[in-house]
């Protein structure tokens, strides 16, 4: 069974229709890259999955459970949406780390706040705190940041910040991890370290959706590539299908523009 099913998503901002009937599905452990020019609706799609936007029409299912159905208001209650968001993690283009916390605190904060809701929180406070900290330390070590844990975001490079942000998203152990152009805000020499980390996650069978402009990276890491244009999914398939023998004229043109850059 597919881990994620997205069916007939529509989203408009005012009169501009940004997503026009988007459907796709994803198997557990798969990596899908979404490519396309700016304004094609890629980022909006990710924001819909993370409930930062509410689709006007459509259904989102995770592990067969309907998380969102535009036709069913009971799936849109603010209190439930908070829990539903935890199925997804999101890594932002501009990191959005919390500047007043250290790298370690950034990774721990959300998990600690969630732990306060556990029924046995009071009794196991110290133990829980220790577990959360151990997990955060191991995540940051995995990101190659063992020497940077107590630094504040402004003391870190862009690439390091983005790796902290990835660790922060992983800390909540999401079913599906989303990346919104994770290297677009970075200097070219820093993109490598972030892409390397994402590649490792892919090798460890994390289910991921990556919106990216790094075509060679998408080709290398993805199981599936989706090409979006003007709010539609125009073409979809394995990397070799989409990159090497695209069917649509628009896809060919887009890829050509990219290669000539």
């Amino acid at each position: 069974m597919a881990i994620l099913e997205v069916e007939h998503i529509h989203k408009s901002f005012g009169r501009t229709e940004v997503l026009k009937d988007v459907s796709f599905s994803l198997e557990k452990g798969q990596v899908v890259s979404i490519i396309g020019s700016s304004g094609s609706g890629k980022t909006t799609l990710l924001r819909c999955l993370n409930f930062l936007e509410h689709p006007d029409k459509g259904v989102i299912r995770v592990n067969g459970e309907t998380l969102f159905d535009a036709g069913d208001l009971t799936t849109q209650l603010e209190t439930q949406i908070r829990k539903k968001r935890l199925h997804f993690g999101l890594v932002f283009q501009s990191f959005n780390l919390f500047p007043q916390y250290t790298a370690l605190q950034n990774v721990m904060l959300a998990k600690e706040l969630l732990a306060e809701e556990l029924p046995d929180y009071k009794a196991r406070k110290k133990e829980i705190h220790r577990e959360i900290k151990e997990q955060a330390v191991s995540l940051l070590t995995q990101m190659g940041l063992e020497n940077r844990m107590n630094n504040y975001p402004h003391q870190l490079s862009g690439g390091q910040c983005q790796r902290v942000a990835i660790a922060r998203a992983l800390a909540l152990d999401p079913d599906i991890l989303c990346f919104d152009e994770p290297t677009s805000a970075l200097d070219p020499e820093l993109t490598g370290e972030v892409l390397k980390v994402i590649k490792e996650l892919a090798d460890n069978n994390h289910t991921m959706i990556i919106v990216t402009h790094e075509m060679s990276f998408a080709k290398e890491v993805s199981d599936q590539v989706v090409f979006m244009d003007d709010g539609y999914i125009l073409e979809q398939g394995t990397p070799s299908q989409v990159f090497d023998s695209p069917k649509e004229e628009r896809t060919k043109q887009f890829l050509k523009n990219y290669h000539s850059k």
Binding site: F51, L52, K83, N96, L113, R168
Partner: peptide, 15 residues
């Protein structure tokens, strides 16, 4: 305070 701060909090399941 940038909107991204609120959004980062939201996707991390904060109230």
């Amino acid at each position: 305070v940038p909107v991204g701060q609120e959004e980062a909090g939201l996707v991390l399941g904060m109230t």
